[in-house]
């Protein structure tokens, strides 16, 4: 407060205190944001002619959505769905089985530093690359088809599952682990009696979540040759069969919705 007489009552002003106190930093940030937006928008090349031509196709796609054609490619759709669903299930199961030991290894409170670092490195590698990029490599290694997709999704599951589970293990209630340790339990007994019971609901929740993600991803990696419904979709769009493509997309949406509905029920039932 400044010394002296209070200011006359009628001149009191109020402005909301700004988010960033320092004036120069504030305007600097605003300026930078505007400059970036202008530069970014300036480099977006939009070919209006091409878009105008494409609107016709866009409209045909909307029509396809309103009247999807399930029958024309039904055999392909069925095969694609079968591949997608089977590789989702197998990849989720295998991915989780591999993730469990890695998650324990990547939990700071359970593992010695060398194991911890190795497991964290595995997680980092798995997480940092897009599923699609991984799929490109596995297709090159294993050949076209769902097996490459299965390997891709298993690999991607490891990074996701082990990271989240490891964080959960690190957050467990230490006093319970302490109590089990105090009974003279071995390391393995510690895991089964103090750690697993605490993180079991989380394991189930994460498994269901990952199952959902894997199914959605299985629709994508087909684009680069790793089997599944994505391959069927890619063909349909390449041949401008928008009514078939719409049918496939609708099926994907319905399956994802069903999976979400089912998993919310399972989760409620488990807890």
């Amino acid at each position: 407060m400044t010394a002296g007489a209070p200011r006359p009552a009628a001149t009191r002003h109020w402005r909301r205190p700004p988010l960033i106190k320092d004036r120069r930093r504030r305007y600097g940030l605003y300026g930078a944001a505007v400059a970036y937006l202008v530069a970014a928008l300036a480099t977006v090349e939009i070919n209006w002619q091409r878009i105008a031509d494409g609107l016709d196709r866009g409209w045909r796609f909307v029509e396809g959505f309103l009247a999807p054609n399930f029958s024309h490619r039904w055999d392909d759709i069925l095969l694609g769905m079968e591949e997608s669903l089977t590789m989702t299930v197998t990849a989720t199961a295998v991915g989780i089985l591999i993730s469990l030991p890695i998650a324990i290894g990547a939990a700071r409170n359970l593992s010695p530093p060398p194991v911890y670092l190795v497991c964290r490195a595995i997680i980092a590698v798995s997480r940092s690359l897009q599923e699609v990029i991984i799929a490109i490599f596995f297709v090159a290694m294993f050949g076209f088809g769902p097996f490459a997709g299965f390997v891709t999704l298993s690999f991607a599951t490891i990074g996701f599952f082990a990271k989240l589970l490891a964080e959960d293990i690190e957050d467990i209630d230490e006093s319970q682990a302490e109590a089990i340790r105090a009974t003279g339990a071995s390391w393995l007994q510690l895991i089964t009696y103090a750690v697993l019971p605490q993180v079991m609901p989380r394991i189930i929740g994460l498994s269901l979540y990952r199952l959902d993600i894997n199914f959605r991803e299985s629709a994508v990696i087909g684009i680069v040759g790793a089997g599944g419904i994505g391959a069927t979709l890619n063909t349909a769009i390449d041949r401008y069969e928008y009514d078939s493509a719409a049918a496939i997309l609708i099926l994907i949406i319905v399956l994802v919705m069903a999976a979400e509905y089912a998993s919310s029920h399972v989760r409620r039932w488990v807890s």
Binding site: A9, A10, R12, H13, W14, R15, R16
Partner: peptide
Amino acid sequence: LRRFPPADVEAAFG
């Protein structure tokens, strides 16, 4: 915009 009439702001201070 948090630009209330001056009379309102004055009353709020009061």
